[in-house]
Design a protein around this nucleic acid. Sequence first.
DNA 1: TCATTATTTAAGCAAATGCTTAAATATAAT
DNA 2: ATTATATTTAAGCATTTGCTTAAATAATGA
Lengths: 125, 125
Amino acid sequence: MNENMFSCVRTKINQDKIENYHRIVNENKTGFKEIAKQIHLAGNEVRLKILWLLRQDEFCVCDLSDILQMSIPAISQHLRKLKDNNMVDFRREGQTLYYFIHPNLSSYVKLIIKELSFEYHKEII
Amino acid sequence: MNENMFSCVRTKINQDKIENYHRIVNENKTGFKEIAKQIHLAGNEVRLKILWLLRQDEFCVCDLSDILQMSIPAISQHLRKLKDNNMVDFRREGQTLYYFIHPNLSSYVKLIIKELSFEYHKEII
DNA sequence: TCATTATTTAAGCAAATGCTTAAATATAAT
DNA sequence: ATTATATTTAAGCATTTGCTTAAATAATGA
């Protein structure tokens, strides 16, 4: 880094500190990105509710639709995002797909949904 | 709930379960909303990095700008969102504002950033 | 007082998000 | 086979998000 890469004058005092943290963040670039992605998916009100529900029990799409009072496609599209990112999985029973928390759910999201303590306890993960 | 409030036929078998969960989710509506909001704010790659950095030390806006290689206004706008939601705070020293993690940071976000373990690799000669 | 520095604020815009409706697919039942 | 049920997929659209640039504050120092 040369001098004019800094945003302000006073930074030069902390040049080493800045460069060190810049390096650490850069070395963990993909880590941050992947973790942020998982957290982002959990940070939607509907999906957070779905994750909480699936921690209590498995549910099919229409169950979730009834519980959350949302359209089937809306729920299905949320589930797809969660599925695409290995946060949930499903098993088929006839025409019905039962969704559940993926065993490999990111530790970050696991922490979050374990912390959600809304009465009704029959935890499955 | 009457019959045609359900999205599918098979749900009627689980009617009690569905209604119970519907009630619990509704009773905790604002809880879910508020928690999702906090998580959502942490689920942005840039803000996640900022939160991680502020957990290590306090930084001013231009430090963060240099470390993350982003414009000052971009950083400032992220900090404002975090500030508006009581996730960070700052102290003034002359013209410089030093940001730090707000002591009342949501327990959910605290869990996340505590879990972020990006090692500081000391140079080995 | 005037210029400099650190930061915020605001306007504008492209991209991402989350719903809606309608059509497609897959399994089951008649 | 034909119909019904459960779910997914796709297109369309309004809203939100996150940057950019330019202008506004706020503190410092000559």
